[in-house]
Design a protein around this nucleic acid. Structure first.
Length: 479
RNA sequence: CGGGAUGUAGCGAAGCUUGGUUAUCGCGUCUGCUUUGGGAGCAGAAGACCAUCGGUUCGAAUCCGAUCAUCCCGACCA
């Protein structure tokens, strides 16, 4: 029987206080710590290792799609930043600006990048002169700073780690395809790596990125019923390129302006993993990003052969490429079980004298507590399938929750009721900003997350203004 | 940025109303012995400029002011 949990180690129940549960998990799974500057966090090894796994998975796919990595400065001269009016109107309120250098006042204050559109434009202006220089598919891994008013670990920080792809193409078609391709990459990483299903689609005018022609998004559903924007891709048209004077000599010997895209995901994905999969025992990590995929816990490790067997199994599994930890610390087995559950390790293997005698081991899946009794000799051959099943179970669980949350409504009262329950509600509307703002006010925070369909049956009216509806949109309350 | 709450050892708290020797307790940590299949037991030990700065006072964790940080609820955004 489970003993009474140590009060100090217990985390707040998910259903009692979801926000508290979230921060408890972040702290107690040792993902991060608060730094001494508001909104800036210390990434601890276990949390950073998750990010490294996510990075590796994304980076490989970006490169498969033609991306090359670059690194641009973290500061932008304000004179340069101010070139694109629509863009700075979106970002100016949340920039951090350096005004002193070496104790001297800077004539042109330096903005710590909140995003690097203008730096990429500045670079591309120098690099592009012929259609032969296109396309350019550059990506940057870096951190950006936005002076946020309220912050939460991984979900919203004054500084966050991300990647930003910035690309130039000859034609609108190529550029639009790139925005969709990268949205597909994000969606795939969600499905195959993070075990997170997304709602995806174009953003409404009101929600789109400052300076973009079109913004596309992937939106996840958290366990508390709120949506989380997990990544966006943008088609910029030629707006930025024109402002920054990027031109090239085209195939017909005329000066042309390239078509531009950008795309990004951030450490917010870590927050999504926590809030989609986590439970009252702590973190639950999908095998593909877990810093430790398998933890081996010896039981009565001082007994003849137990620890040796564990080390031997650990070494064998490591050799096969798995991330394995043999916990030979002198805590009790019960403590270790609880500890590694807190940290979300997908698979636990227990080996004790009894198992040893029978040549077996006990396997426990973090996602559902399912126990398997397997022969130690057969273990290496069974692991791939077991981890695959864990991933599939996690995805199915999340997909089920997402699918069950979606309801179709056709008036404001039903929309409000649906959004208060949590999850997504689909409703036709006209797409006008004014109506979107009214919806937000009426539902106390409901926003358009993504466009579900770009067309509606003949005669469908917007429930807000009564004019012709033009689209069906996923609405939700969001982080 | 508005409303609310909080800040005392690595963690969680008591003490503050009504100022007064050496700041209390639990967990964790360290040492030793016994333990080990769901957060072990006993014994001993170490660990705190009471968030920061300033003020009131003979004397401040305690009263006053400012600042900083964290959490929650709004408004704003990845």
């Amino acid at each position: 029987m489970a003993k009474i949990q140590n009060k100090n180690d217990a985390i707040t129940s998910r259903d009692v206080d979801f926000a508290k549960w979230y921060t408890d998990v972040c702290r107690k799974a040792e993902l991060m710590d608060y730094s001494s500057v508001k909104g800036f966090i210390d990434y601890l090894p276990y949390g950073y290792a998750i990010w490294e796994q996510i990075q590796a998975q994304l980076d490989r796919r970006f490169k498969e799609n033609g991306a090359e990595n670059v690194y641009l400065p973290m500061i932008i001269p304000s004179s340069l930043f101010n070139k694109e009016k629509e863009h700075i109107d979106g970002f100016a309120p949340e920039t951090l600006v350096a005004t002193l250098g070496g104790g001297e006042t800077l004539a042109d204050p330096l903005i710590i990048r909140p995003t690097s559109e203008v730096l990429f434009c500045d670079l591309y202006k120098k690099l592009i002169s012929s259609y032969r220089d296109l396309p350019k598919v550059y990506n940057q891994w870096c951190s950006v700073v936005r002076w946020e008013k309220t912050t939460r670990p991984f979900l919203r920080g004054s500084e966050f780690l991300w990647q930003e792809g910035h690309c130039l193409f000859e034609t609108e078609e190529e550029a639009r395809n790139n925005a969709m391709t990268m949205l597909g990459v994000y969606d795939e990483v969600g499905r195959d790596v993070l075990a997170i299903p997304f709602v995806k689609g174009r953003k409404t005018e009101h929600e789109k990125f400052a300076g973009a022609v079109a913004t596309y998004t992937i939106e996840a559903l958290m366990h508390d019923g709120k949506a989380l924007q997990a990544g966006t891709t943008h088609y910029f048209g030629q707006g930025f390129a024109e402002k920054f004077g990027i031109r090239y000599l085209g195939r017909s010997n005329k000066l042309e302006v390239p078509h531009q895209t950008s795309w990004g995901v951030s450490t917010r994905l870590i927050g999504a993993v926590i809030m989609v999969h986590g439970d009252d025992n702590g973190l639950v990590l999908p095998p593909a990003v877990a810093p430790i995929q398998i933890v081996i816990v010896p039981v009565r490790q001082e007994a003849e052969g137990v620890l040796d067997k564990c080390q031997e199994m650990g070494a064998a599994l490591k050799k096969l490429g798995y991330r394995v930890k043999v916990d030979d610390s002198d805590h009790t087995p019960g403590w270790k079980f609880a500890q590694w559950e807190m940290k979300g390790v997908p698979l636990r293997i227990e080996v004790g004298p009894r198992d040893l005698a029978e040549g077996k081991a006990v396997l426990t899946k973090r996602v559902n507590g399912e126990k398997l009794f397997v022969k130690i000799d057969e273990l290496p051959a069974l692991i791939p399938d077991i981890l695959k099943r864990i991933h599939e179970d996690m995805y199915a669980k999340a997909k089920d929750q997402l699918d069950h949350s979606v309801v179709d409504v056709d008036n404001l009262e039903d929309l409000n009721e649906a959004l208060n329950k949590g999850g997504y509600a689909r409703m036709a509307f006209c797409g006008e900003e004014e109506c979107e703002l009214k919806i937000k006010e009426y539902t106390k925070g409901g926003t358009a997350r993504a466009i579900y369909k770009e067309e509606v049956p003949e005669g469908t009216l917007c429930p807000v203004c009564g004019k012709k509806a033009t689209m069906v949109v996923y609405f939700a309350k969001a982080y």
